[in-house]
Computed example of a mutant assay.
Amino acid sequence: MKIMRTIYPTILLLAVVAASCRTASHQMQILKPADINLSSDIRQVGIINRSLPGKGQGFKNVLEGFVTGESIGADREGSQETLKGLASGLNNGPRFTAVVIEGVELPGTGTREWPPYLDWNQVDELCERFRLDALIALESFDSDTDIRKRSADVERVVDKKKVIVKEYYADLRMNVRSGWTIYKPADHQIVDRNAFNDEMRWSEHGDTPEQVMA
């Protein structure tokens, strides 16, 4: 009986807690701590592409495209999509208003190498023109593509008979490196300079090499 008297209050307590959980429902929006901390006075930010080479300096990128199999202009298109992705991510949150700055030429290295920091006169002019609290510059961008192909003889059943056919395989790996610098004009501060690497992989097989690549 002593055991029963101990169990009953426990069961009653669990029943009350369970009932209260069923009748109360609340939704909360919680901000995840950022990897890079920005001061509270930064709300309007501009994002600009400084990763592309200047005029007449793109030969190295063209040569790299032939060596790695990348399409010419892939880094240009990829870097622009990266700017849009960052702006979309910032604008989806409650704190920042982000705009992609276009039509301003700020040539970079066109490779994974960092360029020198922007001159503060340029930063001040851009932030004043677009009414920004900070300027986020994509200052290095590079994508490498590697395709590995192979084939193998496999056994299949065709018209109820076992036959040996050749099957083709391809593995595609893409590595993207983006380097960012955050400039704060108010006190001429480099808030952060960091590089990020992303890698994606795809695998496919088919009856012909053309089918696999498609």
Score class of each variant (00 low, 15 high):
142 D>L: 14
142 D>K: 14
106 L>M: 14
124 D>N: 15
92 N>P: 00
138 L>G: 13
117 Y>D: 08
114 W>P: 04
108 G>E: 14
106 L>P: 03
113 E>I: 02
119 D>K: 06
117 Y>T: 05
127 C>L: 05
125 E>K: 12
101 I>M: 12
129 R>H: 15
124 D>R: 13
94 P>S: 10
98 A>P: 12
113 E>A: 11
115 P>A: 07
137 A>K: 01
122 Q>V: 06
112 R>W: 15
128 E>P: 06
130 F>W: 15
133 D>F: 04
127 C>W: 11
121 N>L: 13
114 W>A: 08
137 A>C: 04
121 N>F: 12
126 L>R: 06
113 E>F: 05
126 L>D: 03
130 F>K: 04
99 V>K: 11
134 A>K: 01
131 R>C: 08
109 T>F: 13
137 A>F: 06
100 V>A: 01
110 G>D: 04
134 A>H: 11
117 Y>L: 08
124 D>S: 14
107 P>M: 07
119 D>R: 00
98 A>N: 02
116 P>S: 15
125 E>G: 04
115 P>E: 10
142 D>T: 04
113 E>Q: 09
120 W>F: 11
135 L>T: 00
109 T>W: 07
136 I>M: 14
99 V>T: 11
132 L>M: 12
135 L>K: 00
123 V>E: 00
127 C>Y: 12
142 D>E: 13
130 F>Q: 09
132 L>S: 07
96 F>I: 02
92 N>W: 03
105 E>K: 11
96 F>H: 01
128 E>Y: 14
92 N>L: 06
112 R>N: 15
131 R>W: 08
132 L>G: 03
137 A>G: 02
121 N>D: 14
107 P>R: 02
108 G>V: 03
137 A>N: 02
135 L>I: 01
139 E>R: 13
125 E>W: 10
106 L>A: 00
131 R>K: 15
107 P>V: 00
121 N>C: 00
135 L>A: 01
95 R>G: 04
124 D>F: 10
92 N>R: 08
127 C>M: 05
116 P>C: 07
120 W>E: 06
140 S>K: 07
98 A>M: 09
137 A>Y: 02
100 V>E: 02
120 W>A: 05
93 G>M: 06
142 D>I: 13
100 V>H: 10
118 L>A: 10
125 E>D: 12
109 T>D: 05
105 E>L: 08
142 D>A: 11
101 I>L: 15
118 L>K: 13
134 A>M: 04
131 R>V: 06
129 R>Y: 13
105 E>C: 04
95 R>K: 08
98 A>T: 02
133 D>K: 00
103 G>T: 12
130 F>N: 10
116 P>G: 12
106 L>T: 08
138 L>F: 03
117 Y>M: 07
134 A>L: 07
120 W>Y: 11
104 V>P: 03
123 V>C: 01
134 A>E: 02
118 L>E: 02
137 A>S: 09
95 R>V: 01
132 L>R: 00
101 I>C: 11
